[in-house]
Amino acid sequence: MTVSNTFNGITLALSKGRIFEETLPLLAAAGIEPAESPESSRKLIIETNRADVRLVIIRASDTPTYVQYGAADLGIAGKDVLIEHGGTGLYQPVDLNIAKCRMSVAVPAGFDYEAAVQRGGRIRVASKYVRIAREHFAAKGMHVDLIKLYGSMELAPLVGLADVIVDLVSTGGTLRANKLQEVEEIMQISSRLVVNQAALKMKRELLQPVIEAFAGAVKS
């Protein structure tokens, strides 16, 4: 699916922070240099050194939607975001191996997670990633009450809102600071290049070199 757009070049969707910073070497490999940093600019559309390439700066969770509906030709999104979105209409040609972390189950100190799993009892799970959490516990034959939160996940078990949380973990420092412990890794997470399937057909000559440059940079 595509939307009308007066810009006929490549629109690449990126989010601020870690993904943007770790994408810069990949952009350089494709001969693309942002005109400015989104961290120091209020602009949501950033030009590059190439007249036929522009960046749109959006929330990480919105990247698959922008690409799916053709508002961006390609984008970079974490595996977690893509699973929650469902990946409809998206081509995922390259695992970029950036913004690495893991999706894990964490519990407050003293909670007997192994016993809860073995009993197959009902537990309350707080997470931003409800699809991943649902599938993970369903595979264990467990009944869970899912509570969707958008931030401060570590607070949920501390105030009795949930028994466990499912969240992204990098160093584990935030968990330790809030007296939580990681008890189970669900999956490794990294960011992937996603491409609008219609754009790949209509703009192949523009997109293919960028895709190949990204893939080559990852291998090197």
Results as ranks from 00 to 15, higher is better:
residue 95 D to N: 11
residue 194 V to L: 06
residue 178 N to V: 09
residue 21 E to Y: 03
residue 29 A to Y: 03
residue 69 Y to R: 09
residue 73 D to T: 01
residue 204 R to L: 03
residue 134 R to Y: 08
residue 1 M to H: 14
residue 14 L to N: 08
residue 105 V to S: 00
residue 108 P to T: 10
residue 43 K to H: 10
residue 98 I to K: 06
residue 94 V to Q: 01
residue 154 E to A: 11
residue 169 V to A: 08
residue 154 E to W: 11
residue 103 M to D: 07
residue 90 L to P: 08
residue 198 A to T: 15
residue 210 V to N: 06
residue 147 I to A: 06
residue 173 G to H: 00
residue 78 G to P: 06
residue 203 K to L: 10
residue 120 G to L: 04
residue 106 A to K: 01
residue 79 K to L: 14
residue 66 Y to H: 08
residue 54 R to E: 11
residue 10 I to W: 13
residue 220 S to P: 14
residue 3 V to F: 01
residue 212 E to G: 10
residue 27 L to P: 02
residue 13 A to Y: 01
residue 173 G to Q: 00
residue 135 E to T: 05
residue 151 G to V: 11
residue 211 I to V: 15
residue 142 M to V: 03
residue 41 S to E: 05
residue 51 A to I: 09
residue 89 G to C: 13
residue 84 E to H: 04
residue 59 R to C: 09
residue 136 H to R: 02
residue 156 A to F: 12
residue 38 P to I: 07
residue 120 G to I: 06
residue 84 E to F: 03
residue 157 P to M: 01
residue 67 V to D: 07
residue 152 S to K: 12
residue 51 A to Q: 15
residue 76 I to N: 04
residue 207 L to I: 09
residue 46 I to C: 09
residue 201 K to A: 14
residue 22 E to T: 00
residue 31 G to F: 03
residue 125 V to Q: 04
residue 190 S to N: 01
residue 42 R to V: 05
